[in-house]
């Protein structure tokens, strides 16, 4: 094969991808840096302010509040997500005729759009007429003349947001656990059983240790995904009550598009990017150590 021709061919094959990649990924990265150094509105670029906006972010209580809210969401949702995903995978991995039924049921919510799951959640958790309060009254957990106001109380609002998010996304992590469970060789269980191990021992000494690599992967993917949380919170609580559930992306959005302050929003995006980058780098290191393989 003629090397020059092959080089030309490679160039042509890479070109379409790279045109889009440069325009919509690399260029915005640079543009974001530029915007973060300027006063920049929806209409026009105003004046250069240097690093002022980054200094301002560090002193902005609203920024810290939004960052804390996001972190709080991460703390609430990540451990519950991992435990639930593992539990569901164990259920769906049992040898029973309902095996595929369980898998489908647990995964189904993951394909629904964030709008649909948010509005189903929102309507279910309504006071007076919502399904959740109905069921709680029917079970006599909640007295007939009482109501739980799910979305106007901070703690309850977080509960709803975490519950809806778990219901929506746990299926994907369940699938990851499920395929890891199926990779554990049966011979290991058989050998241990011959040695007289109980079901409980099999779980603690074979299943759990075998799941360690996938758990660290899920953990870090989950951390990254949770820091980007926005749409379900925007649709269910709008960040309320009183911005107490407002995540960082919502603050970026509102500052940029409602307050017409794209420069400041771009600077905050960069701070978020740094946080996510650090998490990604940890993930890559972790993966490399676990598999000794290529980063992906």
């Amino acid at each position: 094969m003629n090397g020059k021709r092959e080089g030309m061919f490679a160039f042509l094959f890479l070109l379409p991808f790279f045109v889009a990649y440069v325009l919509f990924t690399l260029l915005p990265m640079l543009k974001g840096l530029q915007m973060s150094l300027y006063k920049w509105t929806l209409i026009a670029k105003l004046h250069f302010v240097g690093l002022d906006q980054y200094v301002q972010i560090m002193r902005d209580p609203e920024f810290w509040n939004a960052l804390w809210n996001t972190t709080y969401f991460v703390i609430l949702s990540t451990p519950t997500m991992i435990v639930l995903a593992l539990g569901l995978a164990l259920v769906a991995n049992r040898n029973s005729r309902l095996k595929t039924f369980y898998r489908s049921v647990f995964f189904l919510p993951s394909v629904l759009s964030v709008t649909v799951i948010s509005y189903v959640g929102l309507f279910m958790f309504r006071p007076y007429t919502g399904l959740v309060n109905n069921v709680l009254k029917w079970l006599h957990v909640l007295p007939e003349n009482k109501e739980i106001f799910w979305l106007t109380d901070e703690t309850n609002a977080w509960l709803v947001l975490v519950a809806v998010t778990l219901w929506w996304t746990v299926g994907i992590n369940m699938i990851l656990y499920l395929s890891a469970l199926q990779d554990i060789p049966d011979s290991m269980y058989e050998a241990a059983r011959l040695d007289g191990a109980t079901d409980r021992q099999l779980f603690w000494y074979i299943t759990l240790p075998s799941l360690r690599p996938i758990t660290s992967t899920i953990l870090l993917l989950q951390l990254i995904a949770s820091y980007k949380v926005f749409a379900q919170i925007w649709l269910i609580t709008k960040g309320g009550p009183l911005n107490q559930t407002r995540p960082i992306i919502q603050y970026i959005y509102e500052e940029g598009f409602k307050n017409n302050n794209l420069g400041y929003a771009a600077a905050m995006s960069y701070v978020l990017f740094l946080i996510l980058l650090i998490l990604s780098l940890i993930h890559m290191k972790w993966n490399q150590r676990a598999e000794g393989g290529t980063p992906a």
């Binding site: 260029l27 543009k31 974001g32 978020l272 996510l276 980058l277 980063p295």
Partner: peptide, 18 residues
């Protein structure tokens, strides 16, 4: 590979401008 590290959400403001 570097692109794997860039979350779309973090470039949404400049993407809008571009």
């Amino acid at each position: 590979l570097a692109g794997l590290m860039v979350p779309g959400e973090a470039t949404i403001i400049p993407l809008y401008q571009v």
